[in-house]
């Protein structure tokens, strides 16, 4: 019997990287999972690779758009009959920039993809979870939700804000069988890292992507990035029935990078 037997989960940005590993983990533990991504192509590839039969369903979703995020949650309930676990995992930035040079577009893009998507997904999921008196909302925050680095004020602000949203939502719903937690990973070598990395390397004058990984991981005690498996293990634990008393927690998975 898997640890999530009979549960239905929806995960934003889950055809690759952290979201994908969480999806694979949940499927292995017996859950039915809706995965999503901006492109049908990535969805098809993920479905084929996961080979999960009826346990996995893909719904396209650009998490930067409210109607798509809400449709994703609704679509999960349409397809699998309910939703128990919502992992609001999508996130990222369009380009790094100092505050002084940040464009409105870059700021707004980050706001929509990170904080707003988390809020839209959370609000829609609660609509289903509260009547059934059971739910697990897991927001993907970041070590950058506690710390600070130059040129990522948009990312950092959003991740700090997600932490605040999680705390409030946890308290609002604490007696209704719904837990709301955040996971705060350290640097993980994902698509986001490889896509945004080269520009950060250039703007910070670093020695390639290895230099960037070392810079971020250098602040950790383990002196290496975290892995998608490590983050997924936390996501599994928080999703379980046994985690019913863990809520409002900013759960670290950062190799000792954050001092609090």
């Amino acid at each position: 019997m898997g640890k999530l037997e009979g549960k239905v989960a929806v995960i934003t940005a889950s055809t690759r990287s952290i979201g994908r590993e969480i999806a694979e983990t949940y499927v292995r533990e017996g859950a039915n999972v809706v995965i999503s991504s901006r492109t049908q192509e990535k969805g098809d590839a993920a479905l084929a690779e996961m080979d999960g039969g009826d346990q996995v369903h893909f719904i396209p979703c650009d998490a930067g758009y409210q109607d798509q995020v809400e449709a994703l949650i609704d679509g999960t309930v349409d397809h699998f009959g309910r939703v128990d676990i919502a992992v609001l995992n999508a996130g990222g930035i369009s380009e790094p920039a100092t505050v002084a040079d940040m464009t409105d577009e870059a700021w707004q893009y980050a706001l929509n993809l990170n904080l707003n998507h988390t809020f839209w997904g959370m609000r829609r999921a609660l609509k289903y979870m509260l009547p059934q008196k059971h739910g697990r909302i897991i927001a993907m925050s970041s070590v950058e939700g506690k710390l600070s680095k130059p040129t990522i004020s948009h990312y950092s602000s959003n991740k700090h804000a997600i932490n605040g949203l999680v705390k409030v939502a946890a308290h609002e719903n604490g007696t209704e069988g719904v837990t709301v937690n955040a996971i705060l990973p350290g640097v993980v070598l994902t698509d986001m890292f490889y896509e945004a990395g080269p520009q950060a390397v250039e703007s910070m004058g670093l020695d390639g992507l290895d230099g960037l990984a070392a810079l971020y991981a250098g602040g950790s005690a383990i002196k290496r990035p975290n892995t998608v498996e490590e983050v997924a293990a936390v996501a599994l634990m928080l999703a379980r029935d046994e985690a019913k008393n863990i809520t409002g927690c900013l759960f670290p998975c950062d190799g000792g990078t954050s001092p609090y």
Binding site: G186, A221, I222, N226, T227, E229, E230, V231, A232, A233, V234, P252, C253, D254, G255, G256, T257, S258, P259
Partner: peptide, 8 residues
């Protein structure tokens, strides 16, 4: 799987 969590 907990190898990445420390100092927490």
């Amino acid at each position: 799987a907990g190898a990445g969590i420390t100092g927490s």
